[in-house]
């Protein structure tokens, strides 16, 4: 009996649970830019990750950490070089190995906001007509194109660069997160550089679905 308990304890001590922070977070200096808890007080030089499990698709995270691409062409909003377009934080993001990215991604997917509501956006894609209307909302009514890259009708990238690119954002972002971001950005970031729009649910869902449908053909 005692031997059995001892073996069990040994197994528990040798296998890290998925919610345990992998050593790469410290080794790679991730905290230099990102916050992994809302309690951390250091200024964020990159996007907060304490809700990464709500925000990102795991497969995208794994791929991004192995072969990072530039999502914010002029850097993160707090970068002193942001207004001039010359960010101080070098891009693209540092690279992790396959194993490291798997460990970090698994950990990041365990980070959630308390009382986060899911199931706000269904899987039904916009019809062709509804998509055209949502594109008008995105580009014309709310002027999102001024700060975010999207695709025009012939698939060419167009739009501003101060916000993160939204090309292929459907691979990166979860629908519920985009919805909540559009509705209440202050839940995630006390002071962003994007206007608050006070959208009703229906409009937020339409824009969410449009944004996530901006895909390059592969």
């Amino acid at each position: 009996m005692r031997i059995g308990i001892g073996v069990l304890l040994l197994i528990c001590m040798s296998v890290s649970p998925v919610w345990a922070e992998p050593e790469e977070i410290e080794k790679k200096g991730c905290r230099d830019c990102h916050r992994f808890s809302s309690e951390e007080k250091q200024p964020a030089r990159g996007p907060d990750l304490f809700y990464a499990g709500d925000k990102f698709h795991e497969n995208w995270l794994k791929e991004f950490l192995q072969s990072p691409k530039v999502i914010r062409k002029v850097g993160y909003i707090t970068d002193p070089g942001f207004p001039s377009g010359n960010p101080e934080v070098s891009q693209p993001h540092s690279t992790l190995t396959h194993e490291e990215s798997a460990r970090v991604s698994t950990f990041l997917m365990t980070l959630h906001l308390p009382d986060y509501e899911t199931g706000k956006v269904d899987d039904v894609p916009l019809s062709k007509g509804a998509r055209a209307q949502a594109k008008m909302l995105f580009e014309r009514n709310f002027g999102c194109i001024a700060c975010h890259e999207a695709l025009n009708l012939v698939g060419k990238v167009r739009g501003g660069v101060s916000g993160p690119t939204l090309v292929d954002s459907g691979l990166r972002l979860k629908p519920d997160w985009v919805f909540h971001w559009l509705k209440s950005p202050e839940k995630f970031l006390p002071r962003g550089r994007m206007p608050v729009f006070n959208l009703d649910d229906e409009t937020a869902i339409r824009i969410t679905k449009y944004v996530l449908s901006i895909r390059t053909k592969k």
Binding site: F82, P83, S84, A146, C147, G160, V161, S162, R193
Partner: peptide, 19 residues
Amino acid sequence: YCTQCHGEKGHGNGVNAPH
């Protein structure tokens, strides 16, 4: 907020302007 499009000194040459 405004410099993103209007530029740091308001000349209309913010980082989004060329796009």
